[in-house]
Design a protein around this nucleic acid. Structure first.
Length: 415
RNA sequence: GCGGGCGUAGCUCAGUUGGUUAGAGCGCGAGAUUGUGGUUCUUGAGGUCGGGGGUUCGAGACCCCUCGCUCGCCCCA
């Protein structure tokens, strides 16, 4: 590995070899199937946008914007950014295409996201998400439905380990502003006792201090004013209704009043689904309501709620996939049948049968190769078969052999 | 961005207090008289010990730097 530096994938990126690619495909396919029953359609937005699209919506002071974005100038001098998440792009697309005239909209998406972070298990610099956005409806029912969709999706994947749905309300914007002021006023008194991280957060995103893992911080937070007390009656009722809808369909919910999301565009309902099967990166699906987002970006006021899930994290929790279907191995017994064998494989493929031509080597060798590709059947072609068109088919598990006309093979073997 | 652990063949790992041509299992290739495999046996290929520098008569082992992975913090999906 003398020139290892250039042959290594960039830090935090990974090749998707066939097995992993199949797992990711399975996750996406599962979402596609589940969302269909909820009336969702796929949307795909560009992998990069003008930097401003993310900077404005996620919040200039958010960690994602302030230190994790892959931003660069293109040759025309424009500042562009590789998308760190999916919602901002969809929101931009809704405005660009004036889709707010066609509400409500239900979109799902998948794709690579980019964040300059320190890689860890379940955390990469290029990672993949699936997500959904439900635009144009601001009712507790819409929140419950969206959360149910996420829950349903994860059930469908049959993840190993336990999942926990945590939910909170950040209140409407007015409530949040009131609360932020009250919280900061309280925390200022303990400023010097707070952890260094939280002292920093006090300036940038004080609500996140509620979520601190530092024991000292937690102690201080115990006495802090509660967001509930600052919430308007409407916001409180809204949150109660969301919970009621969820209980109606038996989705277990844990209210976590310290759950705060890191992106600025959220209001009202916020939620996370957390797995006990991962390490520090335990959140497997998360999202919330973002009613102010589209207006903030310059569009008509449009309600919205959505979530995203990390495909790599889901992959870590996925049970083994079904075994791949087994092919038919076509074997010429002698060189004289090689060309005939090629026509036979093509014939089988034309019938919709997965078939592989085993070339080179003596017959014993070819059988070994057939085993290696996990073939269920071997089709043997010698002088007799070539003359009669009736092929010798051997079941490689049982060893049984039979003769079948080529056009009967599909039925004869129930392939 | 901060702190800890790790990095030896494709994979999983062993390499005694620094000492000659770096090992094993699995996997891979070839063979065991040419129309029948999965077992077994024989045999072969494959490593500049992540990379660079240093200490030493001598380094996979010690020191420094660097790259990557990993655990926690942070952040988040």
């Amino acid at each position: 590995m003398s020139d290892s530096k250039n042959l290594q994938p960039v830090r935090g990126t990974h090749d998707l070899l066939p097995e992993a690619a199949r797992v990711q495909r399975h996750v996406v396919h599962t979402l596609q199937t589940v969302t269909k029953n909820y009336g969702y359609q796929e949307i795909a937005t560009p992998m990069f946008e003008f930097t401003e699209v993310f900077a404005r919506t996620l919040g200039e002071t958010s960690d994602v914007v302030s230190k994790e974005m892959y931003s660069f100038s293109d040759r025309g001098g424009e500042s562009l950014t590789l998308r760190p998440e999916g919602t901002a792009g969809v929101a931009r697309s809704v405005i660009s295409n004036k889709l707010y005239d066609f509400l409500p909209l239900k979109y799902w998406y998948t794709g690579a996201m980019f964040r300059y972070e320190r890689p860890q298990k379940g955390r990469q610099r290029q990672f993949h998400q699936v997500g959904v956005e439900f635009l144009g409806v601001s009712t507790p029912l819409a929140d419950a439905e969206t959360i149910a969709l996420g829950w349903h999706f994860l059930q469908q994947l049959q993840l190993e380990g336990n999942l926990r749905l945590e939910i909170n309300s950040l209140g409407d914007e007015a409530s949040r502003t009131v609360y932020r002021t009250a919280l900061v006023a309280y925390l200022e008194r303990y400023k010097t006792s707070l952890s260094a991280d939280s002292q920093e957060r006090l300036l940038r995103n004080p609500l996140r201090i509620l979520d601190s893992k530092d024991a000292g911080d937690q102690e201080i937070i115990t006495g802090a004013p509660s967001l509930k007390d600052s919430m308007s009656d409407e916001a409180t009722a809204y949150f109660a209704a969301v919970q009621e809808y969820l209980s109606l369909i038996n989705i277990p919910v844990v209210v976590n009043s310290r759950l705060v999301r890191g992106l600025d565009y959220y209001s009202h309902t916020a939620f996370e689904i957390i797995s006990d099967g991962l390490g520090a990166q335990a959140t497997v699906l998360a999202g919330g309501r973002y009613d102010g987002l589209i207006e903030m970006m310059g569009g008509k006021p449009t309600a919205g709620i959505g979530w995203a899930a990390g495909i790599e994290r889901l992959a870590l929790l996925l049970p083994p996939l079904e075994a791949l279907p087994r092919p038919v191995a076509v074997i010429a017994m002698a060189d004289a049948q090689e060309q005939y064998a090629f026509t036979v494989v093509q014939n089988l493929r034309g019938q919709g049968i997965m078939a592989e031509l085993i070339t080179s080597g003596n017959v014993a060798k070819k059988f070994k190769k057939a085993n290696k590709i996990n073939a269920l059947y071997a089709v043997l072609l010698g002088e007799e078969e070539a003359a009669t068109g009736r092929l010798t088919v051997k079941n490689l598990d049982s060893g049984e052999q039979q003769k079948i006309a080529i056009e009967e093979i599909k039925k004869g073997l129930s392939l």
